[in-house]
Simulated scan of single mutants.
Amino acid sequence: MIIPDQTGRTAVVTGANSGLGLASARALAAAGAHVVLAVRDVAKGEAADVPGDVEVRRLDLADLESVRGFAEAWTGELDLLINNAGIMAVPAGVTVDGFELQFGTNHLGHFALTNLLLPSITDRVVTLSSLMHRFGSIAMQDLNWQQRPYNAERAYGQSKLSNLLFTLELQRRLTAAGSPVRALAAHPGWAATNLQSHSGSRVKDGAMALGNAVLGGSADRGAVPTLYAATADLPGGSYVGPRYGLVGPPARVSRSKGAKDLDLARRLWEASAELTGIDFPASLRA
């Protein structure tokens, strides 16, 4: 995808050392942006092939201390934050702070990062969701799977639904505050990356490998909706993906009924703020 000139703009891409994040970082840097690769493993970030004006900074979304450290070290304006990093259908586990691993990494880590950086953001926040959000539900009384038998796929679906609800409520708050910053979400369709190979099950990993071979597109193709959401003139709250579900040009696409629930979005936000101790910046509140 050819994107508009990004000269003079600064972008942070989480999980930018591989897969969709790497493809997005390369495209933005090639268009002239200063790109910060926010990665858990600095050595892997530095080894990533991203020509252009780039730098690598450590960020572990499964550790709120790391998230706070990244935000506290930030100086200057930030045009674009791409909340790309994520894990998928992994075995049961918890983050450093005791959150269910997928919910804690995919949603709470990005929730905290976005709110901490928001005073510096000038243009937009793009958060990656998934078609799998349609198979997720929000168990407000058990967000961290402490009362239910753990189900890796449903936990992933919950985290991806949370990404969309976060975008919905973030845009509502930005609008209420009179901020020009926009919150958008995107999904890649089916992109063949290393995201699908950490289930801990040979059978599941084998099935996903087959799916990658038959249905999956390249990381470059999968990054197109993200780049479209990051650079096109779209209204806040937009959800972008391949026009035909798994394939097709980038377009605004539909989301599940649950992903449009304003009250659920508000309640999830409040719960996320309580869990992380981080909320919408007071300086931006209406």
Rank of each mutant, 00 (worst) to 15 (best):
M1S: 15
M1R: 08
P4F: 01
Q6A: 13
Q6C: 12
T10H: 13
V12M: 10
V12H: 07
V13S: 02
V13R: 02
A16F: 07
S18G: 01
S18P: 00
G19Y: 02
L20I: 15
G21C: 09
G21T: 08
L22F: 05
A23I: 04
S24Q: 09
A25D: 02
L28H: 06
A29T: 03
G32I: 05
A33Y: 00
A33C: 00
H34P: 00
V35W: 03
L37I: 06
L37P: 03
A38M: 10
D41F: 07
D41V: 09
E46S: 11
A47V: 02
P51G: 05
G52V: 03
G52E: 00
D53A: 14
E55I: 12
R57M: 12
D60E: 15
L61N: 08
A62M: 01
G69Q: 07
G76Q: 05
E77A: 15
D79A: 14
L81M: 11
I82N: 07
N83F: 05
N83M: 05
N84C: 11
G86C: 03
G86I: 01
I87R: 07
I87H: 10
P91H: 13
V94C: 12
V96W: 04
L101S: 15
G104A: 14
N106R: 06
H107G: 10
L113P: 04
T114K: 05
N115Y: 12
N115C: 11
D123G: 10
L128W: 00
L128D: 01
S130I: 04
R134W: 13
G136S: 09
S137M: 03
S137R: 14
I138C: 08
D142S: 09
L143G: 07
N144G: 07
W145M: 12
Q146W: 00
Q146R: 13
E153K: 14
Y156D: 11
S162Y: 03
N163W: 02
T167H: 05
R173H: 04
L174F: 06
T175V: 15
T175H: 08
G178W: 02
S179C: 11
P180Q: 11
P180R: 07
A183N: 05
A183T: 10
A183P: 09
A185W: 00
H187G: 06
G189C: 10
W190L: 15
N194G: 15
H198C: 11
H198K: 14
H198Q: 15
G200M: 12
R202G: 13
A207W: 08
A207L: 15
G211Q: 07
N212G: 15
G217N: 02
S218Y: 00
R221N: 13
V224G: 03
Y228P: 03
Y228V: 09
T231V: 08
T231R: 02
A232T: 03
L234D: 04
G237A: 08
S238T: 07
S238L: 01
Y239E: 01
L246T: 13
G248I: 04
G248R: 05
G248A: 06
G248P: 03
P249V: 11
P250M: 04
A251L: 01
R252K: 02
S254N: 12
S254I: 01
A259E: 09
D261A: 08
R266Q: 11
W269A: 05
E270Y: 00
E270V: 05
A271Y: 02
E274M: 06
T276F: 07
D279S: 10
F280H: 03
F280W: 04
L284H: 09
